[in-house]
Simulated assay, not measured.
Amino acid sequence: MTARRSRLSALCLSTALCLNLSAAGPAKAGDDHDPIWKVEKKLLGKDGDKSTDVSGIACTTNAGFPRRCLVIEDEVQAAQIVIVEDGRLLAGDTIPLIGDAFEGKPIEFDGEGVTYADGAFLIIGSHGHPRDKKNKLDPTKDAAKIKASIGASSRIVEVRLDPDQIGPSGGLKAKAAVKVFTGLPAILAAEPLLAPFLNRRLDQNGLTIEGIAAWDDRLFVGLRGPSLGGDRAAIVSMPIKDVMGNGKPKARLHLVPLGLGRGVRDLAASPSGLLVLAGPTAEGDGAYSIYRVKDEAVELLGEVPPLRRDGELVKPEALLFLDQDDDGQRVLVLSDGAKEGAPRPLRIRP
């Protein structure tokens, strides 16, 4: 099956319209002077340490507080319940997603995004070549390991979880039902514009997924790479019911103008449309922005203020719609490279 391509046209943006994002709430004293929300208990990362690789968050509702939510960390095999209140996050129980191993060692799921639809969380893996910043993986000698890693991450895991199953402190009252959708690799391989980039390394403009969001009756999957035509990022959409029913979705490829060498770092649904967190496709520092996609139009909402931790710029990786009023929308941004994501509320245009 070949995905039907739909080019999303960008709105004409004036300086007056493209306002910068501003921090919501009073500044917190510290090296960055940002209003970082407190995390109680612990968001878990690799080996039981505090997470430094938060990559996705979604909640059972996009209105009111507290909210029952799920967070994914890309170096573990489980997701974690989180209660989001206005000003803090309360970490709760974990939910195993996969159990893959290679030579007796667990393989990372490389979970990159979370959304909630029809009574279930959907958690997506990167569907790409394993991260290898130091070029330790040899394509021939380590072929079996690379294949196993790609297989572990090439899934959408459904976690059926009613809000009433989650206690006020993030504890699970009943076991969640988990099932897996494995049809996305075939959809990606059938799209001529994406197929050449499958299983390539990220530093070779390889295909990797970093966002997922349910909006209207469709599931949107956002790709960090490849960067197509230099300034187009790819978003693939398909009917939610086909994914959750393990069917054969008829997919569409949307080419989104996010700028030269930029891709999707996360997606989030909001009442005003699909929100896109955009950032560099390649490794390294760069600017991060939030866009809105609605009715085949792309609108830049502003730039995410940079944040440093331990002298290093962190990378915004997770986006959550909080609320909106006459002054605009509030979103929560969590970052890779910061302990427990350093959750920051930001105010953007309505």
Rank of each mutant, 00 (worst) to 15 (best):
A120R: 10
F121I: 09
F121K: 11
I123C: 12
I124H: 13
G128F: 05
G128H: 07
H129E: 03
P130C: 07
R131I: 05
R131M: 06
D132Q: 08
K134R: 14
K136R: 15
L137E: 08
L137Y: 14
D138K: 10
D138R: 07
D138A: 05
D138Q: 06
P139L: 01
T140Y: 07
T140W: 04
T140I: 10
A143H: 14
A143L: 09
A144K: 15
K145I: 00
K145H: 13
A148V: 06
S149Y: 07
A152I: 04
A152R: 01
R155G: 05
I156M: 03
E158Y: 00
P163L: 12
D164C: 14
I166G: 15
I166C: 14
G167L: 10
G167P: 03
S169C: 08
S169N: 14
K173G: 14
K175A: 15
A176L: 09
V178Q: 03
V178A: 01
K179D: 13
K179G: 06
K179M: 04
V180H: 09
I187Y: 00
L188P: 00
E191R: 01
L193Q: 11
L193F: 00
L194V: 03
A195Y: 00
A195Q: 14
A195M: 03
A195I: 00
P196V: 01
L198T: 03
N199T: 02
R200M: 07
L202V: 11
G206H: 07
G206N: 08
I209W: 12
G211D: 12
